[in-house]
Simulated scan of single mutants.
Amino acid sequence: MKLLKEFTIPFVGLKVGKHHFEYKVEQAFFEHFEYEDFNDVNINVDLVLDKKSTLLELHFKISGWVNINCDLTNEPFNQPVENEFDLVVKFGDEYNDENIDILILPHGTYEVNIQQYIYELIILAVPIKRIHPGVEDGTLDSEILDKLEELSPKLKEKKEKEEDIDPRWNTLKKLLTDK
């Protein structure tokens, strides 16, 4: 995959200490990764790079929203996302990213690309089950919800069937509860 230049940090010229970077992630970023689940994206990434003499510490913090489709109604809505992640960049003989929060770069490397970490951080911040907030509070008016309500089993019918049972069985039901 081609690396995006705006997410490459040349750390060789930075002084020891903390450095702040800000990025704005939009839909084009996910098109680069060929990820098509989002309709629209508006996320701010705040990155604090703490350069030390032998390693780099990166603290990612994302906040914003992604526009996705509801799993129940397929209605688009803005899902707020927030997430944080810490990454330690060390230097060694060869490139190694097997550990989740430790990246080892070869000696002599002068820059680090963070686009994959931002991508994963945003994807993992989105809930697995995507439900429109209007479904949860009952304010969403959708044809799909009306059809689901129409086709759902009725609880009243079940209670009516229980009431039609011969009353002599009620004493047997008491035996089950008297244990």
Results as ranks from 00 to 15, higher is better:
10 P>K: 04
93 D>W: 02
73 T>N: 03
41 V>K: 05
133 P>C: 08
88 V>G: 03
42 N>A: 09
111 E>Q: 11
146 D>T: 09
134 G>N: 03
115 Q>R: 00
92 G>I: 00
52 K>M: 13
2 K>T: 15
22 E>G: 07
146 D>C: 03
112 V>Q: 02
148 L>W: 08
172 L>F: 08
23 Y>K: 06
165 I>L: 10
56 L>G: 07
179 K>E: 15
52 K>W: 04
155 L>K: 14
72 L>G: 12
78 N>G: 07
145 L>N: 02
104 I>C: 09
82 E>W: 02
12 V>Q: 15
28 A>N: 12
130 R>C: 08
119 Y>R: 10
51 K>N: 06
113 N>G: 03
154 K>S: 14
154 K>D: 11
157 E>D: 13
8 T>Q: 09
66 V>W: 01
15 K>Q: 12
73 T>H: 05
162 E>A: 15
37 D>S: 13
114 I>Y: 01
164 D>E: 15
63 S>Q: 13
156 K>N: 13
39 N>H: 09
173 K>G: 15
53 S>M: 07
36 E>Q: 09
63 S>E: 12
55 L>C: 10
54 T>Y: 11
40 D>M: 02
136 E>F: 03
8 T>H: 06
2 K>V: 10
22 E>F: 01
95 Y>V: 02
44 N>Q: 11
97 D>M: 04
159 K>M: 15
174 K>A: 14
128 I>R: 09
149 E>Y: 11
132 H>P: 06
166 D>T: 00
64 G>D: 07
141 D>W: 00
9 I>D: 06
42 N>I: 00
97 D>A: 11
124 L>R: 01
34 E>A: 11
5 K>I: 07
34 E>C: 04
18 K>G: 15
15 K>Y: 04
161 K>D: 14
109 T>G: 03
9 I>E: 08
124 L>D: 07
140 L>M: 05
52 K>N: 12
57 E>H: 05
135 V>S: 08
105 L>A: 09
163 E>A: 12
104 I>H: 06
